[in-house]
Design a protein around this nucleic acid. Sequence first.
DNA 1: TATGAATGAGTTTTCATTCAT
DNA 2: AATGAATGAAAACTCATTCAT
Lengths: 212, 212, 212, 212
Amino acid sequence: MKQRATDDTEKAARRSAILDAARKLYLEDSRQLPSAARIAEAVGLAKGTLYLYFRTKEEIFLALLAQEFSSLLQLVQDVFTSTPVPPPSEYLARYVAHLDRHPELLRLDSMAYSVLEQNMGEAQLRAFKLGLTQGLVAAGALLDQALGLPPGRGTTLLMRTYALTRGLWQSLDYPPAMRAVLADPVFAPIRPDFRGELTEALAEYWRGALLP
Amino acid sequence: MKQRATDDTEKAARRSAILDAARKLYLEDSRQLPSAARIAEAVGLAKGTLYLYFRTKEEIFLALLAQEFSSLLQLVQDVFTSTPVPPPSEYLARYVAHLDRHPELLRLDSMAYSVLEQNMGEAQLRAFKLGLTQGLVAAGALLDQALGLPPGRGTTLLMRTYALTRGLWQSLDYPPAMRAVLADPVFAPIRPDFRGELTEALAEYWRGALLP
Amino acid sequence: MKQRATDDTEKAARRSAILDAARKLYLEDSRQLPSAARIAEAVGLAKGTLYLYFRTKEEIFLALLAQEFSSLLQLVQDVFTSTPVPPPSEYLARYVAHLDRHPELLRLDSMAYSVLEQNMGEAQLRAFKLGLTQGLVAAGALLDQALGLPPGRGTTLLMRTYALTRGLWQSLDYPPAMRAVLADPVFAPIRPDFRGELTEALAEYWRGALLP
Amino acid sequence: MKQRATDDTEKAARRSAILDAARKLYLEDSRQLPSAARIAEAVGLAKGTLYLYFRTKEEIFLALLAQEFSSLLQLVQDVFTSTPVPPPSEYLARYVAHLDRHPELLRLDSMAYSVLEQNMGEAQLRAFKLGLTQGLVAAGALLDQALGLPPGRGTTLLMRTYALTRGLWQSLDYPPAMRAVLADPVFAPIRPDFRGELTEALAEYWRGALLP
DNA sequence: TATGAATGAGTTTTCATTCAT
DNA sequence: AATGAATGAAAACTCATTCAT
């Protein structure tokens, strides 16, 4: 990395490096957002420099989340613009696989509700939410087209799909400290196998949703 | 309230008073858990006294959540032990209505993921989770019986139902600061009408899940 | 000092101990207010304990200043309630001596203008100023009586006396770094002898003010 | 303004532009010195450029103060070199009027004590103080001549006059937050009318000082 | 000369929890 | 059992100044 990021490309790279460091640190201990000091140290920048690229620590977190959502939505495009159009089940399979490869996504998202309250300007929240919505609507439109759904229906499907995903995650993914607890047979009925449970639940939901 | 709680009834009453105060305070500002000092003041006890009834602040929060879940599961019993057995749609309608009357439930639950990580002993988490599971399994069994489902299926249904609920809530309920933002027409596609959205999504899910 | 200050007397003593430590530390380096951490360490209390006695660091500073002013005004009483009533010149001599014995007074006061802006609630400022005014008016009334002045005149005299004092101090007392500079003969015309200069200036002012 | 200041005239102009911007910004909010970034922005220069003209931010502040004092001393010349020599009262009237037209003077000066401590090299302080002294001595000499005073007496008079001024200002000018407070009748005895109070106090002082 | 990206020191305050009374 | 005084860890952010470009 150059000593100074002077043009826009270099600046974007630096921004990106900060996000990468934050993600990495977060995965090491996802009980809490890494401190600004640790992130700075990990990127090899001074604390103050972080604040040239993000106005608050929460903004870093939000940018990370935006990246994650963006790549999740990208999947819709990847799947439904290929020909012949694959069946929804293929999308769901790849969706689950994507979440598996990006364990930070649902963890970050599950902290979002608490974090967003704390230190975010309305404008920043709006921008974040707007970007998300636009991506969602665009992906939904693709779905409408590929599956011959009425306009807007794809967006709804995607949103409910993600809602079910997030809800299940929070029921089934427990902090390390909790893992031991869940091994106990009394917990069998809630089978803490996120991937299998998600696959099945989504299949049920989509079956109901796509009924004529 | 007596000055000193000597017998078990009095102690339970005091415990209960603490939880009531905590719930009330939380509803006044659900962006964060009320501080131990404020709760104490609201119940009319000294700060230290709180710690005679709960080991940590998070334990108060967890006890509250347990109460909420318990009353939500109670609904299953209320509905499915009546004769003739009402159709699932009635359960769903009453479920949605219950959530409406208990706005603290989903808010508390949405903070749980972050909070539980922070300051909970494993034993306490286990106890909480165990109680929840037992209630869930019992309610699931009732469902199995009433609807003639295979054993364990009711539990699964209830868990997925709640997962969808929680996931949608987090997508659609935004902090006061965010409300204004969501009013913007660009956000129309994600219709921030939690109740309607939930009703429809649950109907779809149950339709898919109950298909032969 | 007891481990815990339970009654009001002990609390007042603790408050006082904090102020004493703050004054001592300030005199050691009057370029800036000592940090909360250093004060706490000096009194032998935890940082947090300071905030049980004062709401902000600035409040400590203000309380200190209030003490100083109070003892300065006390002097008026000491002098002008004795019989026979001594001449004003005696009061002035003792006034100058008092300032000499309390080097922190004028230093603190000279920082006040900047500090007060920073972190003070209006209510606290008001309380401070009000106390000061009441003390000033009471002392002024004593002066009126002792010297047979028209009502209110004593207050005015005292205020102007202090104004001249503070103004001269700021012209003549320079930070250690500056001392060397002032030794230079080119500065002779402004004779950096605060005590002498003050004595003479006050004599002139009072002469003019007490003319018939 | 040219892009690059190459000769001395251009450099002086740039220096002057910086001071003007600093003064303007300071008047907008005199609770604190404007930040280097804001000054740079206001002049249309980069932050770094400021440091080509002033070594520290405090040096900017000091240069500003020097300007102000210089124009205040200029008044002595304006008044006492006219013929016939006007009475001291006229000088005092114009002195008060000047302060009225230059609200930044006393405000800046009142912050000086705190600020000067913090970040000034001894050499810079010396230069500042020296300039001030020379101006004061020169003005004092004019006074001696005009009023037939013993040598050095004029300098003393001016210094004490300014001391009284500064001291009264600090007693009577309060930050905006304090204004509301002072409106309260309990504060009447200290009549927060700087101009009137100053006029009267100076009259008394000069009367006493010019007595035979 | 001018720029502006990078630096990094520095400090208050909150609040869950403990424990002397 | 109840009190409430005492504890102390923990971290974001600003902004004057430097120096690579």
